[in-house]
């Protein structure tokens, strides 16, 4: 016998199910009068937020190319200077006008998600090298048993992407473009493919 370590086990995940909107975005689901507005809804910026305004648009596709109509997408990102608005951010103080987190349910008819935000600054990897600008994504839906983590990088950051510590160690190079949002003006298009030829790279974070 040895001494027990006494760690607890993480609560096992279960699917968000078809009615995740009732709990996470009730106003979007037509349930008004309890929450003033849905958590994480609307623009992530105000007039005083520093940084370059961008809009991210995309769809979540299943293995036969159908856009999910019932997915919920959350994003988490640094501010324009690369600081996170989090108590665990110890390198500096983030822009007080930028929370850095938002959630968007896919449109019930088309499935499209939209985030109005800013382009994040660069955040250092644990060895001090700078990671290319990126936004963390978390996707849940009916049929997804455990939330999926991925990242969106920027197509207009080729140089930074080429030396990004995460992107540069991905063995199957042809899959790297699944992590790159395609920039056209202020619009970034970032589609997420759950399965199939174009399956997005998901991370065990």
């Amino acid at each position: 016998m040895v001494q027990p370590l006494n760690y607890l086990k993480e609560s096992p995940s279960q699917t968000a199910g078809p009615y995740v909107h009732i709990g996470c975005t009730p106003n979007f689901a037509g349930l008004h009068g309890v929450y003033d507005k849905d958590l994480g809804a609307g623009p992530m910026v105000n007039d005083n937020t520093r940084g370059e305004r961008i809009t991210i648009r995309g769809f979540v596709y299943d293995g036969v190319g159908n856009a999910l109509k019932d997915a919920l997408v959350e994003v988490w990102q640094a501010d324009a200077d690369g600081f996170y608005n989090s108590p665990s951010e110890t390198r500096g103080t983030a822009d007080p006008n930028f929370f850095g987190w938002a959630r968007c349910p896919g449109d019930m008819t088309t499935g499209e998600f939209v985030f109005e935000t800013i382009k994040p600054g660069q955040v250092p990897f644990k060895d001090g090298r700078l990671m290319a600008p990126h936004i963390s994504f978390w996707i849940v839906a009916r049929g997804i048993n455990i939330g999926l983590n991925t990242r969106m990088y920027f197509s207009d950051e080729e140089e930074a992407n080429a030396v990004d510590p995460i992107l540069s160690r991905i063995e199957h190079r042809m899959r790297v473009p699944t992590l790159i949002g395609q920039r056209d003006g202020d619009i970034l298009t970032f589609n997420i493919h759950l399965q199939g030829e174009k399956e997005t790279i998901f991370f065990d974070v």
Binding site: P87, K126, G143
Partner: peptide
């Protein structure tokens, strides 16, 4: 998990890529 039919077409088939915590995962909204 084919017993839960909706998971069949919504399940990634390739291995997850390990990403040991960077600032982007260690931090979070409060």
């Amino acid at each position: 998990t084919p017993g839960y039919k909706t998971s069949v077409l919504r399940s990634p088939q390739r291995a997850l890529i390990s990403l040991e915590g960077t600032k982007s995962e260690i931090t979070g909204p409060v």
